[in-house]
């Protein structure tokens, strides 16, 4: 099998006395959409920030495209991208100006054409000349996604991409996510609280709780281990501290038990 695009091994992060990520290991295979699922504070964003190099792990290693992130961060970042509901593009610039700036940072060839392409893909071409700060929350999430797709990333990190979207647009974003995976073979790490997202988009799920991984596997595999009818009810039970026998899809031993 081809080597994984992303390999996180024994990742730990301590912020003083807080340990938001507690010894997790997982991998993202080429062309796969992997869901990172977990309640508020489970450590999803911290994990993503470590993969982006914005937060350095206390211990453990991250390999992306077979390279060590700690050593080859810039070369790796060129080939990936990220979109989060927590960040915005500068509100005082126009949409096309923001995309131009990031397009140049990522050295996107034929930038003007690529900008039109991504705007079309997210159906916001008509907003091209608008001031970014004047966009609605949903529009600005889609602009963030445009930025994240500019360089045709081989690895895309999406932190709650559908959080502020209405059902119609959320559905479109899911469709786009699947489409870029089909067309460009993009590997995607996708965090969300929205079970619909996870069930519809993700090939496999890493289920985090309090910094640890409880389950890894397809949604069906996870459910078969948990005596729950749906991911949603499993999620709620875990979040409320219900007793869960942790298990792992495909019979792999779980990292945390």
């Amino acid at each position: 099998m081809a080597s994984p695009v992303l390999e996180a091994t024994d990742l730990v992060k301590d912020f003083g006395a807080v340990r938001p990520v507690d010894n997790i290991s997982f991998e993202l295979r080429r062309g796969e959409i992997l869901g990172l699922l977990g309640a508020n504070g489970a450590g999803k964003t911290t994990a993503i920030n470590m993969i982006l190099g914005i937060v350095t792990p206390t211990s453990g290693t991250i390999r992306v495209f077979g390279k060590d992130l700690a050593r080859e961060r810039i070369a790796i970042l060129r080939r990936m991208n990220f979109c989060s509901t927590y960040t915005q593009l500068p509100g005082n610039l126009r949409v096309w100006q923001n995309l131009t700036v990031f397009g140049k940072i990522y050295r996107v060839p034929n930038l003007k054409r690529r900008i039109d392409e991504v705007l079309d893909l997210l159906e916001i071409r008509h907003l091209k000349d608008r001031v970014s700060g004047h966009l609605s929350a949903g529009e600005s999430t889609r602009l963030n996604l445009c930025k994240a797709l500019l360089n045709k990333p081989e690895l895309l990190l999406l932190d709650e991409p559908t959080a502020s979207l209405d059902p119609d647009i959320a559905d479109k974003v899911r469709t786009v996510t699947k489409r870029i995976r089909e067309e460009d073979g993009t590997s995607i790490l996708y965090t969300s609280h929205n079970m619909r997202d996870v069930e519809e988009v993700c090939d496999r799920v890493v289920f985090m709780h309090k910094g640890r991984i409880l389950f890894t596997g397809t949604a069906a595999e996870i459910l078969s281990h948990s005596n729950e009818q749906s991911l949603e009810s499993l999620f709620i039970r875990v979040a409320r501290g219900g007793e869960i026998e942790s298990g792992e899809g495909k019979g792999e031993p779980d990292a945390t038990t």
């Binding site: 920030n49 982006l52 190099g53 914005i54 810039i74 070369a75 970042l77 060129r78 990220f82 989060s84 927590y86 960040t87 915005q88 593009l89 500068p90 509100g91 005082n92 990031f102 940072i105 990522y106 930025k147």
Partner: peptide, 18 residues
């Protein structure tokens, strides 16, 4: 500070910027 004020910091530092 401009990047702080416009919540753009993560976009910049998660990009290939040395």
């Amino acid at each position: 500070l401009e990047d702080v004020w416009s919540r753009n910091l993560l976009n910049v530092f998660s990009a290939p910027v040395t």
